[in-house]
Design a protein around this nucleic acid. Structure first.
Lengths: 252, 252
DNA sequence: CGGGGGTTTGAGTCCGTTCAAAATACGTGG
DNA sequence: CCACGTATTTTGAACGGACTCAAACCCCCG
């Protein structure tokens, strides 16, 4: 039902740039769910919200980290660029309810990547002092963050492992499997279709490959009947095939 | 003073497999430094210690995570293996004072890699219930772990980035730069030499490459006068050269 | 009906892998 | 101390995947 309300609101007007933490439905299933009313109130008072459009940046590599960001709606990625201009998107997209920049904040470091808006988004910034106060006040919040960090660390190590052992094609298949949970829809005939929130270039950056290589991998998957790309949407007849791309390649 | 006692003990006999947390000199510069005496006492009572020899495993991929491990001495690596038998060492070696397996424990997951002993080691196992109790009792410990996890996450993402953008040669150079802090020694003439605690195969697994490729990269570095390998020791005349391998390749 | 960016395709090259063989190091027993 | 067998490391040649550069294509928008 809450879903329905949101949808109808979206039809009337864009999400307001000033978000109310109490009303924020994402909060209750985020790390912030453990806060008391008083603490939520502090959180609410300590934040500033802003709308962003695709291509904009929230912060840049090397910027000092003065607090953390909370995605109220939209989608944002972390981009890292090396000296030669090679650019990579870290395989950790943040959407509504996700916290952004908590890693450098907690490690006491500068931002190590630039956060780039991929879809129109509303982002809340929470002052570092408030985060510190909340962490000191409510130990459970720290444990929430800890579990989150531990999960993200596992993901990151998994991605490292895959980048070293998987081909571009397998990494693409894996990306589709991840995106299907968030952007996939099952049609009446049971086939799965995913509406990618990303351009080809960004898909490439996400799997750590050039756009050309990604394009070829896309064609291969099409030729082998695994996934059919047309524009931003992907059609998949059997998810098992995608999974098969990861494990044992094709051994009898 | 506690320092002096430990050192003189080490001169007489091998480190005892039963380690005393109070006397452990690594504790004071680890996450556990924030514990009170009572808490250290609990820690001490809740642990079991064991000696391990190279090639042994502390735990295996898929094992349930029943607690965390503390490296009293030695060196251990985390190995991940895929369906085809490809094996990779995560670029996160644990030596004396480091905590092992805290990630799956805090994320509530099974072990995602096997921890393999690289040097003769003494490892303490701390019961999960005790860790939970300590975390609930002393919020600062949670924040310590949080900062640790945040740092490790940064490292992991950096390694992902490098695996995608760097060549084998550059990754090897980077590994040397990391190992020099722990295993490097500066000779009288100012040159640096590193005694690698790893076989070639393990060096290869650490940078995510085949031994053959690693061997060729080693030869290249030798031919270009950057680093001279002979057996397990590496001689480096100018560290700047190593650093140069990372950034802008050779642009004038 | 043109631009113009993003995407795809093609050809050539480079890097890293694979497979196989030689060389070196290492431990053990004579 | 040397000889021998094994395991590790290095080398070589051939292959393959991914990258580079360049051109063609497509789609969206003016």
């Amino acid at each position: 039902m809450a879903n329905r309300v949101t949808v109808s609101m979206a039809q009337h007007r864009k999400p307001p740039s000033k978000v109310n933490c109490f009303a924020c439905q994402h909060r209750i299933e985020s790390d912030w769910s453990v806060l008391t009313d008083d603490e939520v109130s502090l959180l609410d008072r300590s934040k500033t919200c802003r709308k962003y459009l695709p291509g904009e940046y929230i912060f840049h590599e090397g910027d000092p980290c003065r607090g953390i960001y909370c995605v109220a709606s939209g989608l944002v990625g972390i981009r890292k660029t090396d000296a030669d201009g090679n650019s990579v998107l870290l395989p950790r997209l943040a959407s509504a309810g996700d916290t952004l920049g908590y890693r450098p904040f907690l490690a006491g470091e500068c931002h190590r990547g630039s956060s780039e808006i991929m879809e129109p988004s509303v982002i809340c910034f929470i002052r570092g002092s408030a985060v510190k106060e909340l962490l000191g006040h409510n130990p459970i919040l720290g444990l929430q963050f800890l579990a989150r960090a531990a999960k993200d660390l596992g993901q990151a190590e998994e991605h490292y492992f895959q980048s070293v052992t998987f081909s571009v094609r397998a990494r693409l298949a894996h990306l589709l499997l991840v995106l299907k949970d968030r952007y996939g829809e099952v049609a009446d005939d049971g086939t799965l279709s995913i509406e990618l929130p990303l351009s080809r270039k960004d898909v490439a950056a996400l799997i750590g490959a050039r756009p050309e290589s990604t394009s070829r991998a896309i064609r291969q998957l099409k030729e082998d009947g695994v996934a059919y790309f047309s524009g931003q949407t992907v059609h998949i007849s059997a998810v098992e095939n995608l999974v098969g791309e990861l494990g044992a390649d094709d051994h009898i």
